[in-house]
Design a protein around this nucleic acid. Structure first.
Lengths: 117, 117
DNA sequence: GACGTATATGCCTTGACGGGAATATAACCG
DNA sequence: CGGTTATATTCCCGTCAAGGCATATACGTC
């Protein structure tokens, strides 16, 4: 299902590379493996994970198996971060307010903006 | 940098629960742990991962440490799936077209490796 | 400074994950 | 049917992450 398997599948950089590769167009396994620098078994195993997550689907063409991206799970991902979109919209609003800088924000005290590590 | 750590951080369901919890409002560690049914050390370790991924930031209030969500990495996630959004838009368009005319999906032979990335 | 609270870290064990080599399955061709 | 190509699966192993327990650190109070 579209539970944690989706995140687990996308957690691996190789798998994300495969997904990005399939975004352009569907591809057979050998081409995927070569493009990502993966051995054939490893490629199949990654594709298995992506398939279980519903991220890709297969079309059999003779001996080759052509993998294509399935939009649905990524749409689910988009739906997941929908509530967070309002958050960074608000942060932009707060940034604008900081130019005005009045008191009254209990959950957001004025500090240095974007202190990365 | 903000590469795979973001995905790895969000791959864990407990961590996603923490993030969802912090979406409502910033919370101290004890409250997070109790809400997610996590032990205190486990909570701290998960928060450490989220912190390394840049997903949360801390504000020290006396002995308590109040964790708050940082919008930036989630915005990065949003940016990541931006190219895929066109994909499911197209699929909706294609679905609409299928009602109009019977156009099959072009099955291009994969003999043109176009490496990007 | 001793004590209590709140949080972080270290150690250890277990279980999942990824890679490699070998093997199995499936489809096509003669 | 035997052989070849394309892909999937199995087994083994090294690594890494997660949880529990104990402990260390930081802050506040007395």
């Amino acid at each position: 299902m579209s539970d944690g398997t989706l995140w687990t599948a996308l957690a691996d950089p190789h798998r994300r590379a495969i997904v990005a590769l399939l975004l352009e167009r569907p591809r057979p396994v050998a081409e995927i493996g070569e493009a990502c620098g993966l051995s054939q078994p490893s490629t199949s195993k990654h594709l298995r994970v992506l398939r279980d997550a519903g991220l890709v689907r297969v079309r059999q063409d003779a001996q080759r198996r052509v993998y294509a991206l399935d939009p649905a799970p990524i749409a689910a991902l988009d739906a997941w971060l929908t509530p967070y979109r309002t958050l960074w919209n608000e942060s932009l609003v707060a940034l604008g307010r900081r130019l005005d800088r009045t008191a009254g924000e209990p959950s957001d005290p004025p500090e240095d903006p974007t202190p990365k590590d």
